[in-house]
Structures are given as structure tokens and as C-alpha cells.
Amino acid sequence: MMKKQDLAATMVRVFLGMAFLIHGSTKFQNGIENTVGFFESLGLPGFFAYAVAFIELIGGIAMIAGFGTRIVGFLFSLILIGAIVKVKISAGFLGNGQMAGYELDLALLVLSIYLVITNRSAYAVENVYHAQKN
């Protein structure tokens, strides 16, 4: 029988994975060149756009499956910190009427950190390895 904590952690993991998978796939579907240009307009190297999109896409799939949850959660945290500091902080917590604030990014950051510091969630691929090991 699944404990409430296991169910909650699984829900967080799957939601976070879906959110990042959608963001990553959108970057490629809308033309990664647009994202490269945006990154460069922020003073960041254009290749960061590829790295972020790849982490979001592949990391999203891995997170949904429950594979490498802690590592992917850490990578998501780095992306979110970068987004908050480089893009969203100037708009404030709720936004400024022209741009969304950093409230969603902060919420996703907290969820990512939660998955980095907590044990594996139920229904995760990584549990198969740990079950066989024990």
C-alpha cells in the first residue's frame, strides 16, 4: 500500500517532469534559433539554449519515468535559478504587467529541490535497481 508521502512525491515528480518536457519540446518546436537569440540578448552564450532545451526535454522524460530524479532535479534547479536571476527578478514576484514574475519559477525551484533532498518516489524506474540491490 502506497503511503501518502509516496503519492505526493510521485505527483510532484510527474508534474515537474511534464512541465519541463513541455518547455523543452516547445523550444525545439518553435525554433531553437529563437531561444538562442533570446539567450544571446541576455548576454549568455547561445549554446546554453541548446543545453537548457536538452535538459528540459530529456530531463523531463527522465523525471516522469523516475530515472535520475536527484540529478535531474539539481539540473532543473540550476535552470530555474538562472531564469529567476537573469530574466524574472526585475519583474518582481507577481510580474510588472509586461512580463510574468518569478512566482512560478520559484515554485518549480522549490519542487525541484524537494526531489533532490527527498528519497525516491514510488513508481520510479530507479526503484527497480534499488529493489534488486537490496
Rank of each mutant, 00 (worst) to 15 (best):
Gly17Gln: 01
Met18Phe: 13
Met18Pro: 00
Ala19Arg: 09
Ala19Pro: 00
Phe20Asp: 05
Leu21Phe: 13
Leu21Ser: 02
Ile22Tyr: 07
His23Lys: 04
Gly24Thr: 02
Thr26Leu: 13
Lys27Ile: 07
Phe28Ile: 07
Phe28Tyr: 13
Phe28Trp: 15
Gln29Phe: 09
Gln29Pro: 00
Ile32Ala: 08
Glu33Ser: 12
Thr35Met: 11
Val36Tyr: 10
Val36Asp: 06
Gly37Thr: 07
Phe38Lys: 01
Phe38Gln: 05
Phe38Met: 12
Phe39Glu: 13
Glu40Met: 14
Glu40Ala: 09
Leu42Asn: 01
Leu42Trp: 03
Gly43Glu: 06
Gly43Val: 06
Leu44Lys: 03
Leu44Val: 10
Pro45Asp: 11
Pro45Arg: 08
Phe47Met: 13
Phe47Val: 11
Phe48Leu: 15
Ala49Tyr: 07
Ala49Trp: 09
Ala49Met: 04
Tyr50Trp: 14
Ala51Asn: 08
Val52Asp: 10
Ala53Trp: 10
Ala53Arg: 02
Glu56Met: 00
Gly59Arg: 13
Gly60Trp: 04
Gly60Gln: 01
Ala62Pro: 04
Ala62Ser: 11
Ala62Met: 14
Met63Ser: 10
Ile64Arg: 01
Ala65His: 04
Ala65Gln: 08
Ala65Tyr: 09
Gly66Glu: 11
Arg70Ile: 05
Arg70Asp: 08
Ile71Phe: 14
Phe74Ile: 10
Leu75Pro: 11
Phe76Arg: 08
Ser77Pro: 07
Ser77Asp: 08
Ser77Ile: 09
Ser77Trp: 03
Leu78Trp: 14
Leu80Lys: 04
Leu80Glu: 07
Ile81Thr: 01
Gly82Trp: 05
Gly82Tyr: 14
Val85Gly: 01
Lys86Cys: 06
Val87Asn: 07
Ala91Asp: 01
Ala91Tyr: 02
Phe93Tyr: 11
Phe93Pro: 01
Leu94Cys: 15
Leu94Pro: 02
Asn96Ala: 00
Gly97Tyr: 06
Met99Asn: 09
Ala100Tyr: 00
Ala100His: 05
Ala100Trp: 01
Ala100Val: 02
Tyr102His: 04
Tyr102Cys: 01
Tyr102Gly: 00
Glu103Phe: 02
Leu104His: 10
Asp105Lys: 00
Leu106Pro: 13
Leu109Gln: 01
Leu109Asp: 06
Leu109Glu: 02
Leu109Arg: 00
Val110Pro: 08
Ser112Ile: 00
Ile113Glu: 03
Tyr114Glu: 00
Tyr114Val: 03
Tyr114Ile: 06
Tyr114Thr: 09
Ile117Arg: 10
Ile117Cys: 10
Thr118Val: 08
Asn119Ser: 11
Arg120Val: 07
Arg120Lys: 14
Ser121Gly: 06
Ala122Thr: 11
Ala122Tyr: 05
Ala122Asn: 08
Ala122Glu: 11
Tyr123Ile: 09
Ala124Phe: 04
Val125Asn: 08
Glu126Ala: 11
Glu126Thr: 10
Asn127Tyr: 01
Val128Phe: 14
Val128Tyr: 12
Tyr129Trp: 10
Tyr129Leu: 11
His130Thr: 09
His130Val: 07
Ala131Thr: 13
Ala131Ile: 14
Gln132Glu: 12
Gln132Asn: 05
Lys133Glu: 15
